Computed example of a mutant assay.
Amino acid sequence: MKLAGGCRCGAVSYCSVIDSEPVVYACHCQYCQTWSGSSFALHALLPGNAFTLKGPTIEYAYQEDERHAHHYLCAVCHTRIYNTTSAAPGMWILRAGTLENRSSLNPMAHIWTKHKQPWLILPKGIATWPENPTPEAFSAALSTIG
């Protein structure tokens, strides 16, 4: 499957070819709500070595507890493109809203639901966690899909 996308102004673009549908999940944490200016953020978890990224980016990095995160934004319009985290080594957490074909994506899971907006009703039978799941729990839940 070919994935392509980029930032709002067009200065940054990316493409990737992956073997299967991307793992898409919604994060309802307070950081994602603030960063996205919305009630949740939609992410696609993808292998970082499968991407070609073109254009100027800037990095925002931070550490929280034992996790390290590096966020990459367009250096021109500051659209967040992706981040990496020590919780998922070797993976890109792509902002699904930057994909060209984002309308076809459906979240396979929801995390940080303890901060979910009360008016948002999640579909029945979808994996949810009140905070971050362990990588093992996330992988196990996703292996039952499809």
Rank of each mutant, 00 (worst) to 15 (best):
Q30C: 09
T84K: 14
A87P: 03
A61G: 05
K54V: 04
S86M: 10
S104W: 09
S38K: 04
S20D: 15
A127H: 03
P22V: 07
R95I: 06
T134A: 08
K114W: 08
Q63I: 14
W35G: 10
S86I: 11
H28V: 06
G37W: 00
G97Q: 01
A96E: 02
H43K: 01
L105D: 03
I121T: 15
A61K: 05
G37R: 02
N106K: 15
H70R: 13
A96C: 06
C74F: 07
A109W: 02
T34A: 11
W112Y: 11
P22R: 04
L120W: 15
I111K: 01
I126W: 07
A96T: 06
E64N: 14
S38C: 02
Q117C: 13
W112V: 08
H43L: 12
A127Q: 05
R67A: 15
A26L: 03
D19F: 00
H115L: 10
A69H: 15
V24Q: 11
A44H: 00
C27W: 00
A69G: 10
F40V: 09
S38V: 03
I18R: 00
N49H: 13
S20P: 02
Y72H: 14
T98H: 01
G90R: 00
G37P: 01
E100L: 13
N83P: 01
A88G: 03
T79Q: 08
L105G: 02
A44E: 00
T34R: 10
A88H: 10
I58N: 05
Q33V: 03
N101S: 09
F51C: 06
S104K: 14
T84F: 00
T98C: 03
G48Y: 03
T85M: 03
G90S: 05
A69I: 03
A140V: 11
M108F: 04
W35V: 12
A69P: 11
L45W: 05
L73V: 01
A137K: 15
P47F: 08
S139Q: 12
H71R: 10
W129I: 01
S38N: 11
P107R: 06
Y31T: 05
H71T: 06
A69F: 15
V23F: 09
R67P: 00
P22N: 04
A140S: 15
A87F: 06
A61L: 09
E131K: 13
A75F: 11
I121L: 14
K116A: 11
R95P: 01
N132L: 10
H28R: 02
M108T: 12
A87G: 07
N101M: 07
G90H: 02
K124V: 07
P56W: 08
I18G: 02
L42Y: 03
D19Q: 07
Q33N: 05
E66W: 09
V23H: 09
H68T: 15
W119G: 09
W92S: 08
E100I: 10
A41Y: 04
L142N: 14
E21L: 08
H70D: 13
E100G: 12
A61R: 07
D65N: 13
H78R: 08
F40M: 05
A88W: 00
H110A: 05
T57Q: 00
I58E: 11
H115V: 01
L42P: 01
E21R: 01
H28M: 04
T98N: 03
G97F: 06
H68M: 13
H68L: 15
N106D: 10
R95H: 08
S38M: 01
S86D: 04
I18L: 02
S86H: 06
L142M: 14
